[in-house]
């Protein structure tokens, strides 16, 4: 079975005064109908990878790759018009903070129906029905009321569920979730994740879950990519995280407190320059 999304040697670079800055430096992975976690600290290029896939890197940023295919079709640097037909309809994204990622002066209903109507060319009534159905699917109890509400009138957890409803309404095949719970209270975090997880699995979608939270990723994903300085340093099944071999991953794990293994002092992550460029045991050996 060919993967849903296949990325080889993805690079994103930005020209700066002091030369070119490479935010992503040769990232490769395949995504099937699975949940793929991407973990790394801020600046490791994980968000930029997601945006590059959606073609959202604005000039003067430059995206190159040996291969970037959606269902076997190349999607790298497509003309804007074709890219727009993919965005929302086939690949979608949920962002970090619903306080900022929802338009404050537009009703929630309009924001949901807008994208759906664009891709399905359906009637306003059908779009409304679909929006209410989606709101119900993300377990919002009073969808009619929320439909006419503005984003500032709902809480953060609710806002993120609305965001999920909005992005899943046109039935995309891939959802990129970029730190979807980092801005939420811990109490609603798991609930939002469970709703997203269920919807993604019921629809047989591929999920790219970008996070800096190792435990969360281990719990909600099938496979994990560990990114450091714009590169993937390790890839392993989520349940195997404890057996990570790369010192960076081990360092990340050791800096987390553990209930079953309390220590006096958590160890501080010691970064090594060699991680930036050393040869990595990738699942795509012998070049890509």
């Amino acid at each position: 079975m060919s993967p849903l999304l296949s990325v080889r040697n993805l690079r994103v670079s930005f020209p700066t005064r002091s030369g070119t800055f490479d935010a992503v430096r040769g990232v490769s992975f395949d995504l099937g109908r699975e949940r793929l976690g991407v973990v790394g600290e801020s600046g490791s290029g994980k968000s930029m990878t997601g945006r590059a896939i959606l073609g959202l890197v604005r000039p003067p940023g430059r995206v190159t790759a040996d291969r970037m295919e959606l269902d076997g079709q190349p999607i790298l640097n497509l003309p804007e018009r074709q890219m727009r037909a993919l965005r929302g309809a086939r690949i979608s994204m949920v962002m970090q903070d619903p306080k900022f990622s929802l338009n404050p002066v537009m009703t929630i209903g309009r924001q949901i129906t807008e994208g759906y109507r664009l891709h399905t060319r359906t009637t306003p009534q059908a779009a409304r029905d679909k929006a209410l159905e989606m709101l119900r699917a993300v377990q919002i109890r009073d969808p009619e009321r929320v439909f006419d509400a503005y984003p500032h009138e709902v809480s953060g957890g609710m806002g993120q569920r609305i965001m999920i409803a909005m992005m899943l309404a046109p039935d995309p095949e891939i959802l990129i979730a970029d730190e979807p719970t980092s801005a939420l209270d811990v109490s609603v975090r798991n609930e939002v994740l469970r709703i997203m997880d269920k919807l993604v699995r019921d629809r047989g979608m591929g999920l790219i879950f970008i996070s800096h939270d190792l435990n969360l990723v281990a719990e909600f994903c099938d496979r994990v990519l560990i990114m450091y300085a714009g590169r993937v340093v390790e890839e392993l099944p989520a349940h195997d995280l404890k057996n990570a071999r790369h010192p960076y991953t081990q360092g990340l794990l050791n800096s987390l407190p553990r209930l079953d293994h309390p220590v006096e002092r958590l160890s501080v992550l010691q970064r090594q320059d060699s991680w930036r460029d050393e040869e990595i045991a990738t699942p795509f050996p012998g070049g890509l």
Binding site: L56, R87, S92, M95, N103, G115, L118, M163
Partner: peptide, 11 residues
């Protein structure tokens, strides 16, 4: 961010 959201929708 909401502008990015709008772009993600494919508008």
């Amino acid at each position: 961010e909401y502008v990015t959201t709008a772009r993600v929708k494919g508008l």
